[in-house]
């Protein structure tokens, strides 16, 4: 069993999607406890990929492959997970998007993938999302967390505009707000009244866990 879990971990760490899906199928066929496979196998792999990213050993391509493998394994396991009553054990719903004027998708996509891989339900609005759409999606989806990315100094002001609009709509306190993107910083986050800042996808998962705990 320990060997099997290590294989699951390594499939994610190596970013080998096919191997990860194959192992997920085997886990179901062999009747292995799905939660164990996730928490002691695949999730260990994605966390280690995150650690390697923070140490500067992994970069976006490696992280993208690992996150994709994790996501694929989770999709394979989901029916069995729901059947076993786990219901995916969602840690919370996240609405995420890149602000208007900014077509950068990459960082936001990675944060979305990493959050999904770590057990969050994701509503991805995509890139170049209008300010009022963020507000209406917060109203409609009632997420636990709103994540906004801006890659340009010309678009980062949009993060502030949206937070102000949430306040005006009287729903600022109903949701936690996490911001990110190359020009954003911790100071920027506190200046504009966000609940947190993360400078990469791995940090975003840590931060989401922290502010929603």
């Amino acid at each position: 069993m320990r060997e099997f879990l290590a294989e699951c971990k390594n499939a994610v760490l190596d970013g080998d999607r096919e191997r990860a899906v194959g192992l997920a199928v085997r886990a179901i066929d062999d009747g292995i406890e799905v939660l164990d496979v996730i928490e002691q196998g695949f999730a260990v792999g994605i966390r280690e990929a995150g650690d390697r990213w923070e140490k500067g050993e992994y970069f976006l391509p490696e992280l993208a492959f690992s996150a994709e493998s994790m996501k694929a394994a989770m999709e394979t396991l989901r029916p069995a997970l729901i059947e076993s009553g786990g219901k995916g054990r969602s840690k919370g719903t996240v609405v995420i998007g890149t602000v208007q004027g900014d077509i950068h998708d990459i960082g936001k996509m990675l944060v979305a993938t990493m959050l999904a891989a770590n057990g969050y339900e994701i509503v991805d609005l995509g890139a170049d999302v209008a300010h009022d759409r963020f507000v209406s999606e917060v109203k409609n989806q009632q997420p636990d967390l709103l994540c906004m990315s801006a890659l340009l100094t010309t678009t980062m002001m949009g993060q502030k505009t949206i937070i102000d609009m949430l306040s005006e709509a009287g729903i600022r306190n109903s949701v936690k707000v996490l911001i990110g993107g190359a020009p954003a910083t911790e100071t920027w986050a506190s200046d504009i009244g966000a609940d947190g800042y993360a400078d990469n996808a791995v940090a975003a998962v840590h931060k989401a866990d922290e502010i929603l705990s």
């Binding site: 100094t153 980062m156 002001m157 502030k160 954003a184 910083t185 100071t187 920027w188 200046d191 504009i192």
Partner: peptide, 10 residues
């Protein structure tokens, strides 16, 4: 350096 906001300007 690093950006922050002052008087609504980065």
């Amino acid at each position: 350096g690093q950006p922050s906001i002052r008087n609504d300007m980065p």
